[in-house]
């Protein structure tokens, strides 16, 4: 047993080392707001490409760019705004030009029954209201800031979250009276939140670009994912989820 011990310690390491064929895995880094649609498309993609395992990683777009810049192995990157996509392109980490595949607009999310009685964007500045928004660094936060600026309003949120899903979670839990999220988030949450549309939202359109990541092992598989997003079936998935068509 004593002689076996070093062996036992090393064994798990070799297991992690992995001998599996990496070429059969497509790693997609996507903005948190794409979670539901991409999970749906993952199924379709894997059906069309037998033997290919799609791995999805969702986070705030800025987080994902930072991870890729730090060497995370992603094959495809889908951002929730142009700003973060530009960061990837500027760092020479994009293989080719990004393609826009969807747009999204902001909406006010409130807990079911709208306990705080929110009706307009201006209501979000009420002092008694617990408002949660995204931090300005993430796309939903910069969109919220732009909307507020355009409407001449100043929000005093109780928290600035790192991703749009965190904002939604706080509204769903009833901890916040209102949050600024995407139309698609409210639609995806079903009856766990209510959405209150506001006219100012139309002024800020969020663009969703996608690109293959430089140095990807399998450029063809990556391109096939991008093609799927732009295909008629792919676009239908986005429309069903509440996304707008690509503007560009």
């Amino acid at each position: 047993m004593k002689r076996l011990l070093p062996l036992l310690l090393v064994l798990p390491l070799t297991a992690c080392g992995g001998t599996e064929d990496d070429s059969s895995t497509l790693t997609v880094f996507a903005a948190a707001s794409l979670t539901k649609t991409f999970e749906q498309l993952e199924q379709q993609y894997e059906d069309e490409h037998p033997g290919v395992d799609v791995k999805l990683s969702f986070a705030g777009s800025s987080d994902l760019v930072a991870q890729i810049a730090d060497g995370a192995e992603a094959d495809v990157f889908a951002s929730a705004d142009d700003k973060n996509m530009d960061k990837l392109v500027d760092a020479d980490l994009a293989a080719g030009d990004p393609s826009e595949f969807a747009t999204n607009t902001l909406i006010i999310a409130v807990p079911p029954g709208n306990p705080a009685g929110v009706k307009t964007l201006a209501d979000l500045t009420r002092a008694d209201l617990q408002l949660v928004v995204c931090a300005p660094e993430v796309p939903c936060g910069s969109a919220a800031a732009t909307v507020a600026e355009g409407a001449g309003l100043e929000f005093a949120p109780v928290s600035e979250e790192q991703s749009v899903t965190d904002v939604l979670a706080k509204v769903e839990a009833g901890e916040a009276d209102a949050g600024l999220v995407y139309v698609t988030d409210v639609k995806g949450a079903g009856d766990k939140v209510e959405g209150i549309a506001f006219p100012e939202a139309a002024t800020v359109l969020n663009h969703y670009p996608v690109v293959a990541v430089e140095g990807t092992d399998d450029a063809d598989l990556a391109q096939a994912w991008i093609d799927l997003l732009l295909s008629t079936e792919g676009q239908q998935v986005f429309t069903d989820a509440g996304f707008g068509p690509p503007a560009a």
Binding site: V132, S159, E160, E161
Partner: peptide
């Protein structure tokens, strides 16, 4: 639990 806001949390 507390959220993230400059000066408060």
């Amino acid at each position: 639990f507390a959220g993230s806001l400059e000066g408060t949390t």
